[in-house]
Structures are given as structure tokens and as C-alpha cells.
Design a protein around this nucleic acid. Structure first.
Length: 256
DNA sequence: AATGTCATCAACCGCCAGGAA
DNA sequence: GTTCCTGGCGGTTGATGACAT
């Protein structure tokens, strides 16, 4: 479902991420944080551009990400927020801890956009048929009814969802819902991980005094991968041929 | 069974804003 | 004040699975 891996003219790898690359990136960031996306791949031992690494981390590897289907409540909130603020996906995503802007954007285009259009059409049709009926009935009965139609007119819907609408003001408050993942040094925030996976509770400065800056990072989990580097990892990958098995292995090792 | 079409979603690309030099 | 660099955002692409014909 993703682009096949390939190398561009600069020797940068593009396309689908392998389990090994994921592990390298995850381990590096959990150990050192993402201090500079451009430089990071070099030190993490990845042949990827910084942008690609950032995207992979933000949209897929962050430990706090919630996978799985969107709930009805989430759908409703997305529709509501999109109505209020338009395609500001990153702002909308802040209201959904564990969801990424990319995920929400995809979900919108794949499901909610159609549903919203359909609903609006139904409302519009309903409004038109109501209007026709009112024209026929013209005067007398149903003053209350015509008022209720006014509330639901498409025009009103547009007004409500307009960025200029007062409702917009709520979005600034919602932005404080930040997941906090974007912080520069997101050290070992994963519950339980730091104990058995990456024993690095040191500070950024402490790490920087060593070989960290000059040597490519080797994604070793000193406790569980005593051989270090990827010799052992590759052995694991020989043992576990597919990603799901590898994922299972990662889980048992506490990498995830 | 073969082929065509649609749906999904990870990943890429280009642009912009903000901060540092 | 200007330029450069980086991170972040939103739009788009493309591979692949699901479904229809």
C-alpha cells in the first residue's frame, strides 16, 4: 500500500520503511531525542532525509499514537472542527491525542468528506422541499415551521462554519491540547520502556560529550541486544520473516 | 478466473513561518 | 534589514487490497 523503496539521485532512500529502519529511528529518538531532523538520519545510521524521518516518527513511530478505527464521537468532532476551522489539520489533530494530522486528513478525505456532502445534500433537499411546500401553502399555518427552516438553511450552515464565525475563537483554546510529542527532547516518555529497553536517563549534554556527535548511532539496546548494532537484529529478522512476527518480537522485547 | 475500478493510507513534495546568523 | 536554515503544514501521489463486472 506504500511506495516501493528506492534510492534517489542523492543516494537517499525513499518509499516504504523497513522494520530495521523503524527500529533505528525509534531507538535513536528515544535515546537522544530529535535534536535536529536534518542531521539525525546521519547519526542514526539511516539513508533517509530528515524530513522523511520526521514524518515517519510523527505519523507512525511516536509511542503515544493511537492506532485503529475512528469512533463515532471522533468522526463527529472532526466534522464539527473541520466546519469551524477548515483544512487546518494540525490544529484539528491537537484535539485528538494519539491521532496525527495525516491520519485525520486521510480519514476526512476517505470517509467524512463524502458523508458531510451527503448530509448537506440531504439537508439542502429537505430544505428545498420544505420551501416548495411552504410556497404552496403560502400564508397562514406554519409560521413556526418556517422559522425552524430558517435555522437550518444552507446559508446558515455556511455562516456557522465560516472562519469568521465567533465559533472560531474556540480553536485557540483547543490548541492547548497538545500531545506534547513535539518537544525537542522527548526522552524516554514511553511508560516502561526506559527500564528494559533503553537505559539512557542521561541528559542531552551528558551524551553530547562523548562520541555521540562523531559516530553514527548504533541502535543497540544494551540490555537486550548485547551483541550491539544490527548483527543481532538481522539475525532476528532472519528468524522472523514478516513484519507482524517482527512486531511481535519487538513487543516481547519491550521495544514498543 | 481475469480484468477493471474504487478505497485506503503511508509517504512525498512544495510552500511558508519563525528563528538564528 | 536580509539571508539562510529548519520545522511544520497541507495537498497530492501511488501502491495495493477489496470489490464489482
Amino acid at each position: 500500500m506504500v511506495r516501493a523503496p528506492f534510492y534517489d539521485k542523492n543516494g537517499m532512500k525513499k518509499g516504504e520503511w523497513s522494520a530495521e529502519e523503524d527500529h533505528k529511528l525509534r531507538s535513536y529518538i528515544q535515546r537522544y531525542g530529535h535534536w535536529n531532523w536534518r542531521e539525525l538520519p546521519k547519526y542514526a545510521g539511516l539513508k533517509r532525509c530528515g524530513k522523511s524521518c520526521r514524518l515517519r516518527w510523527m505519523n507512525y513511530l511516536r509511542p503515544e499514537l493511537k492506532r485503529g478505527n475512528f469512533t463515532e464521537e471522533e468522526d463527529a468532532s472532526i466534522i464539527k472542527l473541520h466546519g469551524e476551522m477548515g483544512n487546518r489539520w494540525s490544529t484539528i489533530a491537537k484535539s485528538f491525542p494519539g491521532r496525527t494530522d495525516n491520519e485525520i486528513k486521510n480519514h476526512w478525505h476517505a470517509h467524512l468528506k463524502k458523508r458531510t456532502k451527503r448530509d448537506e445534500k440531504e439537508k439542502s433537499d429537505c430544505w428545498q422541499s420544505e420551501a416548495t411546500r411552504n410556497e404552496n401553502n403560502c400564508e397562514g399555518e406554519g409560521e413556526g415551521e418556517s422559522n425552524s427552516i430558517l435555522v437550518d438553511t444552507p446559508n446558515n450552515m455556511i455562516l456557522e462554519s465560516s472562519p469568521l464565525s465567533p465559533a472560531t475563537s474556540t480553536c485557540t483554546e483547543q490548541s492547548s491540547f497538545s500531545s506534547g510529542s513535539g518537544s525537542m527532547f522527548s526522552f524516554n516518555v514511553v511508560g516502561g520502556l526506559e527500564d528494559n529497553c533503553l537505559p539512557c536517563s542521561g541528559t542531552y549534554e551528558a551524551e553530547s560529550s562523548g562520541d555521540f556527535w562523531s559516530q553514527p548511532f548504533v541502535a543497540d539496546n544494551t540490555s537486550s541486544l548485547e551483541k550491539g548494532g544490527f548483527e543481532m537484529l538481522l539475525e532476528y529478522e532472519d528468524m522472523y520473516h514478516d513484519d507482524s512476527a517482527y512486531l511481535l518480537y519487538e513487543l516481547t522485547q519491550g521495544w514498543i
